[in-house]
């Protein structure tokens, strides 16, 4: 067996910088996904059928095709059509944000639907209009159903983020591959990157557990 971790030592700062590169677009993607996902979820539960259809078709498309294909379409096909040379960072947050929104909208929709129907009736019987009802009565209860599932979505997104390496974005994964090409060794840099991903996901999981426990306390 031929393993030599000493060879990657000079590359450690270079790879570590990838953590920030990865986190940067993961965080922006999560925010985009969360905002758009919330809007889509509201579209799904409205009585206006055109919005409902739009949100459902959107979800169906983004969940029904590979993320890597969506990423490629945005990064390589958009410039072909528009002539705008889209930066890798923008492609990445667009693909991940739009894709995540589809999943987040389902999580939020399910979380809202799971709130006891009697809550809506009680609010309606008191004459509470739709907006304050959603804001003060339904959403605070839905959050309890939503947050744990949302944490899972963030974890998935963090791991899946590695596929932005395919469009040349200098994330953690891409940097590991560069080191691999530099030193003609695959195992050490990949294992190093893998360990970093694991730590990031581990921390997210811990945060998720903490959030869940806090929510259960108020029950």
């Amino acid at each position: 067996m031929d393993l030599d971790f000493n060879q990657i030592v000079p590359y450690i700062p270079f790879v570590l910088e990838g953590i920030w590169a990865t986190l940067q677009f993961v965080i922006v993607s999560i925010v985009v996904g969360l905002l758009l996902g919330t809007v889509l979820a509201l579209c799904k539960i409205t009585k206006i059928s055109i919005l409902r259809v739009f949100a459902n078709v959107y979800t169906s498309i983004f969940r029904g095709t590979p993320l890597i294909l969506q990423l490629m379409l945005i990064h390589y096909a958009v410039p072909q059509i528009t002539g705008y040379d889209i930066p890798a960072f923008l492609s990445a947050i667009l693909a991940f944000g739009l894709n995540s929104a589809a999943y987040v909208s389902e999580i939020i929709r399910a979380g809202i639907m799971a709130v006891d129907k009697g809550q809506i009736e009680a609010a309606e019987a008191l004459g509470v209009p739709y907006k304050p009802m959603m804001l003060h009565i339904i959403m605070p209860q839905a959050v309890k159903n939503i947050l744990p599932a949302l944490m899972n979505e963030f974890i998935t997104l963090t791991k899946e983020s590695a596929i932005v390496s395919t469009i040349g974005y200098l994330d953690l994964m891409r940097r590991a591959q560069i080191v691999q090409a530099d030193i003609y060794r695959a195992f050490e840099p990949l294992l190093f990157a893998g360990a970093i991903y694991w730590v990031m996901v581990f921390i997210l999981t811990k945060i998720g557990g903490l959030v869940e426990r806090r929510l259960r306390q108020s029950d």
């Binding site: 006891d116 009697g118 809550q119 009736e121 009680a122 309606e124 019987a125 008191l126 004459g127 509470v128 209009p129 009565i137 209860q141």
Partner: peptide
């Protein structure tokens, strides 16, 4: 909504805001 302000309702399952 306007008229309901004048009509209170009590449910079998209480439906208090938890």
């Amino acid at each position: 909504l306007e008229i309901r302000k004048n009509i209170g309702m009590v449910f079998q399952q209480f439906n208090l805001f938890p």
